[in-house]
Design a binder for these strands. Structure first.
Lengths: 201, 201
DNA sequence: ACCTGAACACCGTTCAAGT
DNA sequence: ACCTGAACACCGTTCAAGT
């Protein structure tokens, strides 16, 4: 039978889940699908593009529910929560999406960026800075989650030394950093509204 | 003559500067040094460790001058400025340091983290959260700079479409995101001091 | 249109054996 | 102690040729 793009992406995702990003190679994927390596290049221009498709598969659940409701703070929190959850649902998910985002290969990651930008605008951030505020949130989220996930995997593999103050309560820790950014965005708003620097404690 | 660790790191750095991270392979490095690939494994356990040494070479200029002076805001700004400058001074510097940091192979990156943590503590962030605040800054810095640098390189390679609002005035854009984080840290302080949420605009 | 076979030009790492 | 030679087990990508 014919090989379809979506079969390839599905096989790639299960390779990722079962063996991790290091073992997600074009050759191994071809072997799994019982085709020759060259066959994949009929459907995808290169590996980056294929990984981008896997990234978008991982990100599919993001932004499907309530993330359009509430004020700008609620929307940032819920979008980020969904995004983090999606990344944590696949082995090396954060690393893969991070790489695809950096390479400009993930359409859905751009969508997330747009929604965060809108939220930042609504918070009162100047239009020229809204996307940057959104990116700041995304850089944090990807860095934090990739870190968290690699520690989890080390941990599951039985390495000690890793289980410090660091590995416990990752959701609360994640929320703390996100709060920092949200407070920063709110402060930026005040600059604009009050035309004066925020009062120091 | 004998091969020394520091010769290897130096050759690796010049390979990086001239050809980029994709061409920084153990085999190519060995060829450049006119030794067999196996020789490198006498001096370094693996490629990751060697890249960590290159990362620390890149980071050597960070924190050598005035970055211990001033209040906590000044110290964060100057440490981050020096760090970003060091990364931009080498082809793919941000990507390489980012990878080494994630792999826990850069001693100097840990030092930077410590200094940012101290600054955050001084700002009034609770001890348990100070390192996290520092990490948030580092995740932002690495994400932003890697992005900036890859655009610069695309741009220098003659790609258009890249030169949008995005590529202009990167230092001002960097400062904006950093300000967001600093304001967020300051707001966190207020929570602690006033024991009440920050007033909304 | 879609895929195979085979090649090209590489990788990181190990290790017996040499000096 | 330090390095070579050679091997092991892989990579991503291309492309003439087949169906």
């Amino acid at each position: 039978m014919q090989l379809h793009k979506r079969d390839v992406v599905e096989a790639a995702t299960s390779l990722l889940d079962n063996y991790g990003i290091a073992d997600l190679s074009m050759r191994r994927l071809a072997r799994e699908l019982e085709v020759s390596p060259g066959a994949l290049y009929w459907h995808f221009a290169n590996k980056q593009q294929l990984l981008g498709a896997v990234a978008d598969r991982i990100l599919a659940p993001v932004g499907t529910d309530d993330s359009a409701a509430g004020d700008w703070r609620d929307r940032i929190v819920s979008t980020c929560g969904q995004l983090r959850e999606a990344l944590l649902s696949h082995t090396d998910g954060a690393e893969l999406v991070s790489a695809s985002f950096a390479a400009g290969q993930s359409k859905l990651m751009s969508d997330v960026l747009d929604r965060l930008s809108t939220a930042a605008s609504e918070a009162g951030v100047a239009p020229a800075n809204a996307e940057l505020a959104a990116r700041t949130v995304v850089y944090y989220l990807l860095g934090f989650t990739a870190d968290e996930q690699s520690r989890m995997q080390w941990d599951a593999a039985g390495a000690d030394v890793v289980r410090t103050v660091w590995t416990e309560n990752p959701s609360a820790r994640f929320a703390f950093g996100l709060r920092l950014l949200i407070d920063g965005i709110a402060a930026e708003t005040e600059h604009v509204l009050e035309k004066t620097p925020k009062v120091r404690a």
